[in-house]
Amino acid sequence: MATTSDNTVEKVSCKCRLCGAQSQYVFKGPLLDLEIAYYKCQTCDYLQTETPTWLGIAYEHPINSSDTGIMERNLRNTDVTIAVLSVFAGGEKQAVDFAGGWGVLVRLLRDRGVDARWMDKYSDNLFARGFEYDSKQSREHLALTAFEVFEHLENPLEEIRQMVKISSFVLFSTQLRAENSIPPQSWWYLGAEHGQHIGFFSLRTLEWLARELGMHVVSDGRSYHALTERPINRIFWKPVLWLSKPIAWLVTLRHESLILEDHQRHSQVSHSRKE
């Protein structure tokens, strides 16, 4: 057992929720109104909280009130998605947004001509109603986005396996730690005020994950990454992210927006109901 500075006793180790190896106790920190322990895996470098018994409270409101960057982030992610799919995924125009929240990204992508679909087991679909993901949808020519999702996963390997069953091209974001590092307890990404972030990756963790899945990983070393069936030329990854806005603008010129088509579809459904 290990004694912390406030004289409480924590387990020296616990099972890594990602790889199943032993994670060693590293520190204790505040989360919501709790003091919880953090553990780091020696095998895959995954940093995790103790068993997250507080998630019922944390997800009373799936979109937490401290997420003031949600709209700007969705605008940025729209450009990134269009640019990445255009350059690295053969110009795919179909996508499913895993844990899509209120459906903001799905609506923005559809406005720009991408046939995007929504899925989320925690949140209501407010902005993309009628465009939920159907598991019967073909896996071919389909990409999956998972922005700010990986750090929320309670059973990360199992849930990421579900993602790659849907698509062999997974574009995602999560803030990386430096490899083999222990972040300060003040690190903003620990999300102490909302309690939804329970697992933290480094590049080493992503590389372990890609090997386990039999896939390839590419990363900007900070926040944007992709798990793919075919390798991506890493030389071009960062430039495409940097230039995502103009690339997306050029691509959108060739795509017809789905705004009018979606409006007509909903109008027809509404009319048929009245009849």
Rank of each mutant, 00 (worst) to 15 (best):
F169P: 00
K245E: 12
Q94D: 12
H197K: 03
L250C: 12
L109F: 08
R230W: 04
E10D: 09
A143L: 02
E140F: 13
S168K: 13
V149D: 03
N233E: 14
L105K: 00
S219R: 03
H141S: 12
V80A: 12
G90N: 03
I182W: 04
I160V: 13
L258K: 04
I182N: 07
I259Y: 08
A116L: 09
R110L: 06
K28I: 02
V218L: 05
H194K: 05
S138C: 10
K245P: 05
A37M: 07
A37I: 08
K245Q: 13
V149Q: 02
M119I: 15
L171F: 14
E179C: 10
L213G: 10
T3G: 00
R117E: 06
Q48K: 08
Q162K: 09
V9C: 01
L18G: 02
M215E: 03
K165A: 11
V9Y: 01
L85V: 07
Q22N: 12
L176Y: 07
K93Y: 04
A58F: 02
Q268W: 00
H263I: 13
G199R: 01
Y189K: 05
D115K: 14
R222N: 14
L47T: 09
Q268V: 09
I160P: 04
L209K: 04
W237N: 08
F88W: 06
A83K: 02
Y224F: 15
V164R: 07
G191Y: 02
R139G: 06
R107A: 14
G69M: 10
T51M: 11
I82M: 11
L157I: 06
D79G: 00
K245N: 11
S267P: 02
K274D: 10
L34T: 03
C14S: 09
L190V: 08
L206H: 00
E132P: 05
T252A: 15
V106Q: 03
T145S: 14
G90D: 03
R211C: 11
T205E: 01
K245A: 12
M1L: 07
R204V: 09
K245T: 11
S66H: 10
F169N: 00
G130W: 05
C14L: 11
L260M: 13
L31F: 02
N125D: 08
M163F: 15
Q42T: 13
S66Y: 10
R222Q: 14
S272D: 15
L142F: 06
E275I: 13
A37G: 12
V269L: 13
